[in-house]
């Protein structure tokens, strides 16, 4: 039933949340009955070929999900999957070109300077790419050309997902991890205008330099996993497992930070209370990150261990 589970998972992702469970349960029952009928005819248990036959007849998951909605669309269900895929791929290509350019420039001062300029521009380019792709699909929708998307679909194209994607959670993770990586590697910085007096004389302790690579690897790993899930739009067992591994490793790094004697160093020019305040603030921030990471790791463990999608 792995194929059926993946199929229902993808149908469910496009259904209203309040009706999802009911609709999926009913569809599952219907599919099971059809499989039983096929198996009874053949005098054996249902197999993967039967599953493919039943799902192939049912059609693309989005087509099934859209039949439950009476909404009218600017870009209707006939084109929406192709639209979403084109949009994601185009913006992904813009980001990939941007990253390649950054790597080619290296991390010297010129490269950093160019990257800072590009960071603003990449958002603008992505916006215009989205506008162009959307306009093309609006024209296709009004011209009635449906690209034959559903006709070309077969159950073999199903990604073997174990859990649906929580869009908000995924996007927040990507933004937080991406921003941290840029900050941590010195490509962006907090801009205070002028350094405030109370920061004078404070510096990070050596533990941060020791953890430069581990933090890059763990947060970078999580960013990579989340980027792949964004493209695939479904959690697979291996991606859930990787998120758990990187999450646990990050928790280890955060524990080392919390156990360190000092997170900031102090010289004579900084008042002692400022040092204590800065150290406590940093520890609080690390604890908060640890709590979020622990929560995400718990969810990842649930996805990884889930034997199969069940409503």
């Amino acid at each position: 039933m792995e194929l059926v589970n993946s199929y229902l998972l993808q149908v469910g992702q496009h259904l209203p949340r309040d009706q999802r469970s009911d609709i999926i349960r009913e569809l599952r029952d219907d599919i099971t009955e059809q499989l039983d009928a096929l198996a009874e005819q053949a005098g054996r248990s249902p197999d993967a070929a039967d599953e493919r036959a039943v799902l192939g007849r049912l059609g693309h998951p989005l087509k099934v999900a859209s039949s439950y909605s009476s909404r009218r669309y600017l870009i209707g269900p006939g084109l929406y999957p192709a639209y979403l895929k084109t949009l994601r791929t185009s913006i992904g290509l813009v980001l990939a070109s941007f990253l390649l350019f950054w790597v080619a420039m290296g991390s010297d001062n010129t490269g950093t300077y160019v990257l800072k300029g590009l960071l603003g521009q990449v958002l603008g380019i992505s916006f215009w790419v989205a506008v162009i792709v959307t306009t093309v699909f609006l024209l296709l929708e009004t011209s009635g050309d449906k690209l034959g998307w559903y006709h070309d679909w077969s159950p073999d194209q199903l990604k073997r997902g174990v859990s649906s994607v929580d869009t908000g959670d995924l996007v927040i993770n990507l933004i937080a991890e991406g921003y941290f990586l840029l900050l941590w590697n010195g490509f962006v910085s907090f801009s205070w205008g002028a350094d405030p007096q109370w920061l004078a004389g404070l510096d990070f302790s050596s533990i941060w330099a020791d953890l430069f690579l581990p933090l890059n690897l763990t947060v970078g790993g999580l960013f990579g996993v989340h980027a792949v899930v964004l493209v695939q739009w479904v959690w697979q067992r291996w991606s859930a497992c990787l998120e758990l591994v990187f999450g646990v490793l990050l928790l280890g790094v955060l524990a080392i930070l919390l156990l360190a004697g000092n997170l900031v160093t102090w010289n004579d020019t900084a008042p002692e209370e400022t040092v204590v305040w800065a150290d406590r603030t940093l520890r609080f921030a690390v604890v908060m990150v640890a709590v979020f990471t622990l929560w995400d790791s718990k969810l990842a463990y649930g996805r990884w261990r889930q034997p199969a999608f069940d409503e």
């Binding site: 009706q19 609709i23 569809l27 219907d30 049912l58 059609g59 099934v64 039949s67 439950y68």
Partner: peptide, 11 residues
């Protein structure tokens, strides 16, 4: 078809 019947009975 399932995609016609189930939405219809829900409606």
């Amino acid at each position: 078809e399932e995609g016609t019947l189930y939405p219809l009975i829900r409606r």
